[in-house]
Amino acid sequence: MSEGASASDDAINFLATVPLLDGMPEAELAELARITRRRELPAGEVLWRQGDEAKAMALIVDGRVSVSLRLPGDRTVQISTMGRGEVLGEIPLLDGGLHSAKASVVEPATLLLLARADFAALVSRRHPTAFALKRRIAGVACARLRLQLAGLAASLGDGAGAPVAEANAALESSGPPDSAYVQRLATFHAFDSLALWGFLTAGRFARCPAGRTLVAEGAPSTACYVVMNGAVEKVIIRGDRRIRVGLAGPGHAFGYESLIDGDPSPVTAFTRERTLLLVLPQDAFERLFHGETTGSHVFLDVIHRDLMVALREALRPHARLAASV
């Protein structure tokens, strides 16, 4: 066996142990191993700084990497320390944004780096590995979001939580918005006409006045909602204390966390303004999320982008809390 083949086998064997890739077929692991690059970094090396353009996702083979957030007034808050088998930088890998936190090596580390350009090439070839990885990253992002939200919930202490959510069936049905309007929303720019039609007819439209609870923290969400007009606020409530963790305006989704991982909703979502919603029941969500059609692929991107926004938004109150200490 050549040295190269042995290194590749090592990479495949390692990838098979990474929880993110658990159960992924060997052929897909081999494809990933082929496009990842191995790097060894000493302690103290900065992998990327907060605000750097995202160029790669890192899988930790060995060592430890610290993730920290820089705050105004020369302050820093450490968010987590990650070790073998854990993944970082997967969020900007998908949305092409900037790194929201600094990553630095605290114990000499070996990493496998998946470059954004290589991942994009996989996506543009519609390679099954790309889509399998995207769905899995959605799961990881969802778990990370839950962790961040749980930290915020803990900062509020005890107290009664969310009010009961309104049943979907009780929402007043509405006709669809004008298709030209929908196409002007940035979220839907990537949909071709056929895919957009498939998406818009996958659920039903509903109008909702301001102040209605649509998703309750701690209860499973029965649908994924996409805001067409208006705005929905995502909050964590404990007694008379609350933290806003996100605001979904036109083109943004909410209520999907339960449908991705089967756990109860981590937030309460209520209409901040009167709102026109596309309601995608669980079966429609699953058909779109797990499908292999063009529409499914674009929908997956919509959910991803939304998860990334949700993660960034959930960091904001963390930063404010830390900055106010």
Binding site: R184, A186, N229, G230, A231, P250, R272
Partner: peptide
Amino acid sequence: DYGWYPDEDTLLE
């Protein structure tokens, strides 16, 4: 009324 735009709104984006 954040997020509420008439269908024909030209300032939408």
